[in-house]
């Protein structure tokens, strides 16, 4: 594809904390639907976004069991973004900062997410059409 672009994003917020995560996922979804190649470098708490052991839970206050509550899980959103990119002819490559993973014991990531170093972010930035760093506040 002539207009195929490669964009790199770096995110740092953990799941269930900041609207920034949702906004970045909206950007990724939009770009994935264009068939772009996408790189995501997850740093700090963001390495927990694709953590495979996230599980749905009941909500006694709502009177819902786990299925009825249907609590959204960030790992499913990440998996969905990877699939959306693939479906539209692009790819989404996700790297978790290895040290951040070790600190948090977040070793089990869903398929499509791998371990790396900040050096990978630097390489991606060199190779991409653009890079957006989304820091914590």
């Amino acid at each position: 594809m002539k207009d195929k672009k490669t964009l790199t994003f770096s995110i740092m917020d953990g799941p269930y904390e900041q609207a920034r995560t949702v906004t970045v996922f909206r950007l990724l979804d939009n770009a994935a639907r264009r068939g772009y190649n996408l790189n995501v470098f997850a740093y700090e708490g963001a390495v927990n976004l694709p953590f495979s052991k996230q599980s749905k839970h009941p909500n006694a206050v709502h009177g819902h069991d786990a299925a009825e509550e249907d609590h959204p899980l960030p790992k499913d959103w990440v998996a969905s973004l990877i699939q959306t990119a693939k479906k539209h002819g692009g790819a989404l490559d996700w790297i978790n900062c290895g040290l951040c993973v070790d600190e948090r014991g977040a070793h089990e990531a869903i398929e499509g997410c791998r371990r790396g170093t900040p050096g990978d972010l630097w390489k991606w930035a060199q190779q991409s059409d653009n890079t957006l760093i989304v820091g914590t506040r």
């Binding site: 964009l7 906004t23 950007l27 939009n30 770009a31």
Partner: peptide, 11 residues
């Protein structure tokens, strides 16, 4: 939000 992706792609 398309505008953000457009402008990122534009470099």
């Amino acid at each position: 939000i398309d505008v953000v992706v457009d402008q990122l792609a534009e470099g």
